[in-house]
């Protein structure tokens, strides 16, 4: 069982993600170049953060047509585990593997800081080592992370439990002040209906060692490791 980290031109969190999986968690992991059309037989694909194709046109709009994305789409449709972090989340929305879109932050600023997110659904492959309602401290770093979708989509996301993370304060309260980008319903991360694809703006790979200020990201990556192991069996 192994992880694949896709590398697009302009990805810049690929090495951090690789490090978190290989060095911190001791898992086999490979880079997958965006021009490749197969996924090296991995059990979980991660689309890392960064600025693929310079964020030209719209964030993720060009990357979505990379050769590797055809393989990622087929993998996701077969039930394979896919995690998109930050720019990866934007790419998954552009590829229609997740509903909605990510647009310019409400305050226009690029926001780079630790935030609190509340685990809304702890029964998924990405969150089963968390408790429902648990508050995690994980950094964000984005200029275009304001999640938007139409009202029907939001109702479906809520009804199906597809909202996995919401921005909150340190006590877990969903306040306007704790929403760093103006996302609808304080959304920080959503899954697809099958719960095998997750997109999230916060960076779990940047919260994997105490020296980085938080180890809470490990709960998400470790959940994935156990899920991928279960799939591999």
């Amino acid at each position: 069982m192994k992880f694949g980290v896709v590398v697009f031109p302009g990805s810049n969190c690929d090495a951090d993600t690789y490090y978190a999986l290989r060095d911190v968690l001791g898992q086999p992991v490979e880079y997958i170049w965006h021009q490749e059309d197969h996924l090296h037989g991995v059990d979980c694909v991660i689309l890392p953060g960064g600025f693929s194709y310079g964020d030209y046109l719209r964030c993720g709009a060009i990357a979505r047509f990379s050769p590797v994305m055809r393989a990622v789409e087929a993998f996701a449709l077969e039930g394979g585990l896919v995690l998109g972090i930050c720019n990866g989340f934007q790419i998954l929305c552009e590829a229609h593997l997740l509903p909605g879109a990510l647009v310019r932050n409400e305050g226009l600023r690029f926001v780079c800081k630790h935030v609190w997110i509340r685990v809304e659904n702890a029964t998924t492959p990405f969150t089963h080592l968390c408790r429902a309602g648990e508050v995690l401290r994980i950094p964000i770093a984005h200029g275009e992370g304001r999640y938007v979708c139409d009202r029907e989509t939001l109702q479906e996301l809520q009804a199906n439990g597809q909202i996995l993370f919401r921005y909150c304060d340190g006590t877990g309260a969903l306040t306007r002040e704790s929403n760093p980008n103006g996302s609808v319903a304080n959304i920080a991360g959503i899954a697809n209906e099958r719960f095998n694809v997750l997109g999230m703006m916060p960076h779990p790979e940047r919260a994997c060692e105490a020296i980085l200020g938080s180890e809470d990201g490990l709960k998400i990556l470790q959940s994935l490791v156990h899920s991928a192991l279960a799939v591999a069996r």
Binding site: L57, A61, E94, P99, A101, V148, C149
Partner: peptide, 8 residues
């Protein structure tokens, strides 16, 4: 397909 995002 590419130039505009129908969601936004």
């Amino acid at each position: 397909r590419l130039l505009a995002n129908p969601v936004t």
